[in-house]
Design a protein around this nucleic acid. Sequence first.
DNA 1: TTGTAAGCGTTATCAC
DNA 2: GTGATAACGCTTACAA
Lengths: 347, 347
Amino acid sequence: MRGKRVTSQDVAERAGVSRTTVSFVLNNVAGVQISEATRKRVLEAAEEMGYVPDAAARALASRRAQIIGLVLTRSPHHIASDAFITPLLDELIDVVRRHGLRMMIDIIEPQHQKEAYLELIRAKRIDGILLSGPRLDDEALKTLEEDGFPTVLMGQLSGTKFCWVDIDNRKAAKMAVSHLVKLGHSHIACITNADVSYTAAADRMTGYRQALKDAGLSFDQNLVRYGDFDMDSGFRQMESLLDSGSSFTAAFIASDTVALGAKAAIRKKGLRVPKDISLVGFDDLPFARYMDPPLTTVNLPIADLAREAGEMLVNILNNKKPGCQRKLLNTKLVIRASCGTKNNGYP
Amino acid sequence: MRGKRVTSQDVAERAGVSRTTVSFVLNNVAGVQISEATRKRVLEAAEEMGYVPDAAARALASRRAQIIGLVLTRSPHHIASDAFITPLLDELIDVVRRHGLRMMIDIIEPQHQKEAYLELIRAKRIDGILLSGPRLDDEALKTLEEDGFPTVLMGQLSGTKFCWVDIDNRKAAKMAVSHLVKLGHSHIACITNADVSYTAAADRMTGYRQALKDAGLSFDQNLVRYGDFDMDSGFRQMESLLDSGSSFTAAFIASDTVALGAKAAIRKKGLRVPKDISLVGFDDLPFARYMDPPLTTVNLPIADLAREAGEMLVNILNNKKPGCQRKLLNTKLVIRASCGTKNNGYP
DNA sequence: TTGTAAGCGTTATCAC
DNA sequence: GTGATAACGCTTACAA
């Protein structure tokens, strides 16, 4: 780094070949036969000289940056949950590394700078994009769709032809609520994870309604509240539910984070979980099992989601499995101690 | 993106100037006088044609990638806490964007791939590096130090000449423990956030000892356990403490995450917080205020830390404020409801 | 099987 | 003030 850079020219000279050969060997170009001896000589020379190809030069010449962009939507509250970002990054970086790529990250506010990430593409900084928390009102996304830029969404966007990976939110929510029904609850409240303009929130809500319907229970709008990603919203909405006078013995809360806030509100009212109110969450964040009582919740396989999305994008970049791919991942209910059979109820 | 790319050549032709002039105008090169008329014409042409400079070409020619690397140390357990990564990224991306840069992210295992991030530098992918959770046994770091590669650490590394930003862990821990002392506690246990080979863990431990010393209390090794970043370790270590037969009425737990596990262990034993045992945590993670009872803890200003580190690196890259800079940020104790005055105690 | 040479789209050094 | 022109370090037809 200090001295002059080692270039492919230097390696070529040392190995007694041309730069072309060096390039062929180092990039393992298919369809080109190079003798074992030459190959070995080049590899050794590169190794000895500590040659590392210049990324910019390579990108310029090959028209491939070998970088994928990870774009997260920063609502005022962040994507699904902060707790997901670590396993997400972890897994994605593994995928990317396995394929010899790098990852560039950007976070956008849905309100402003919506277009900010287009620069990544226009400046050819990235070859493909992974978008978490896509929104219909994202104008930049339309551009991507028109241009056919390699894109994979984490989450669905109906009416578009994007590839995506997601979980079956409806099915998962239904499973969670059915669990409550089986325990004998007939008055089950619901706090969504977010505004229903988010597909995931709407789907979870739908699952809740379906479970009620399947059980022959009636849907009561008075038992529904809308969370807003964070603990505060859970606290407020549960307070509202408790103060409303509507009676219920259980609640499906479509986010562990929101559930944590809700539990605090229940406790503040002097009520107990699950004695007075049973709770089912969603996400299975690390803290769920350490809540008091440990929270029964839907496990969201975030690492799988990330890996599938990453591999899907890589496949697209490599022109394997072309066309539009979609994948719905399974979830499972993790039963812990926040649900009881219906008993005294509230009020 | 679909049609042929717009190059600076195209812009130059449209504006009726040379590529050089376009470059001067768009990069706001100092020391070059360009007439307002020309400048405006170039800017307009670029705007109209939707010109976005090619990042690779620019990097190749200017020898500046305009990208900084964020390298996180992935221990088996991740940097300090998962919950920190979102505000960290958030703030860093703001800084970077403000300066017209981009960010590339990498995560390394301290065991393997220690050298993996050197490729970022060797391939000239990044101009500077931001390293979180630096470790003394990181060989690659030595290389950076020798080469004088622009680097800012988040966390300290004694015996090196790196720039860094950190909090005063010792002072913060002392403040936390003194709080317990003031409440009348004289038998105060300690669970570290991690192994003391981590500087932060060692410093927090030292702060704990100093607080005891200042209060004239004796240090008892039997009251100390070593956490390991996660909730599980907190659970296990608190169990060990409780089973050891040593008596204590309060505990300083140098991580909220670890504290959450510890609290579960306390509850499992049928004890209460703060009635039987007072608890002080460290980090002030979002869930701390929603714990039952809300956790008294040290607030770690992660966003400030990120911003300071980011700005410091940018300054170094711009050759402002040269030399080695170091910054210690203040913390404050957030008093909630997990501490009481000494009363019955345990056992 | 390997080499030659022409780009890739900028920036930067000089002249004018 | 502005414009040629040479790097920058690599990939990749095309030749040999």
